[in-house]
Nucleic acid binder design. Structure first.
Lengths: 184, 184
DNA sequence: CAGGAATCTGACCGATCGGTCAGCTAGCGT
DNA sequence: ACGCTAGCTGACCGATCGGTCAGATTCCTG
């Protein structure tokens, strides 16, 4: 594997678990078996490392949202959205964990502003499909809880099944949670 | 209000939203209208500020858990636990947000180790009361989702009702989510 | 083998970090 | 008026931060 891709994955794990601010370029270099200078050879800056780490997941989430905002949101549409969301969660736990937890604290970092704008669009998407405060809370608990489960609770021994089992169970619980929210 | 209490609240808000590592003593001083030296007059170190900020909420959560671990966990016991948990969430959103999101990244900080041990005890408490992986996920989504809702999604305009409305809705949704989990 | 590009490195920079210390100042009991 | 204390401050410290740069090394290609 190339050093650049090595660094990308190391940085993603480290940013997600230890925090962006708390992770120094020196530490990334040590984890990759390189010098700090080499890290800055592959990436123009620390922010560039962050952008490389979460950019792909961000683009995929944007893609999902664009498709969904354009289409009609009937029962099938919501089901499809939940499936796409859960798949993205399962594929990009670290990225989601990173910009869910640290997004609000890293304003003024361009790629994070992109991520925050995305989260706000998801929130607006919910708000447009939820009439009451309780319905909004159902969306928040379903998506926030699912993201939290996969990203944080995983390290607490609460996750055991295979990926497919997890996917099915997640979709079942989230669907049940959102069942009372009628289509508008 | 005393400068010390001022600083405690400012630090709590700043640590929770911007992150512990990303918040400098200099910044806390500026927000409080003091010098950095004054901050270190009131608190022995940055860690001491953190401990003062989240200590009380931590103690309360520990108290709740001790009572619950000793008692029987019948339907009433679970209901009581959920109510105590939601009340704690509503009273200490910032503290919970802080050590839920940053706990895993701040190991070796004594007060955070205390918080992490607490989260692990909560997880073990769940595991002991959930037979299948899906049941564990229900606990994780209910509590993680509720915490995420109140702490993070709040800033996205998803929270609008009064505290009592939020409390009732939260308890309703969480109760519904955990209903399929039978008492052992 | 030659040579240019890709990769990597140590030395160094200014800024900021958490923390120490001596001393200034305002209030208060005597 | 006195001294004591609580509150506060600027100057300063070593360490580390993100980032620059000139040069060494490795590698591929002609």
């Amino acid at each position: 594997m190339s050093s650049q891709e090595d660094l990308r994955l190391i940085a993603l794990a480290e940013f997600a678990t230890a925090g962006y601010a708390a992770t120094s370029l020196q530490r990334l270099a040590e984890l990759a078996g390189l010098s700090k200078s080499s890290v800055l050879y592959h990436f123009a800056s620390k922010e560039a490392v962050l952008e490389a780490a979460i950019g792909p997941a961000l683009a995929r989430m944007e893609q999902i949202l664009v498709e969904r905002e354009l289409g009609v949101l009937d029962d099938n549409g919501r089901r499809a959205f939940l499936e796409q969301f859960v798949d993205l969660l399962l594929d990009h736990r670290l990225e989601v964990h990173l910009f869910i937890n640290q997004g609000p604290s890293l304003v003024d970092v361009p790629v994070i502003d992109r991520a925050n704008a995305l989260v706000e669009r998801i929130a607006a998407f919910f708000a447009a499909n939820a009439a009451t405060a309780e319905e909004k809370m159902r969306f928040g608990i379903a998506l926030g809880g699912a993201a939290y489960m996969l990203c944080t609770a995983q390290s607490l021994g609460l996750m055991v099944g295979t990926r497919e089992e997890t996917r099915v169970a997640l979709l079942s619980i989230m669907g049940e949670l959102l069942a009372p929210v009628r289509i508008r």
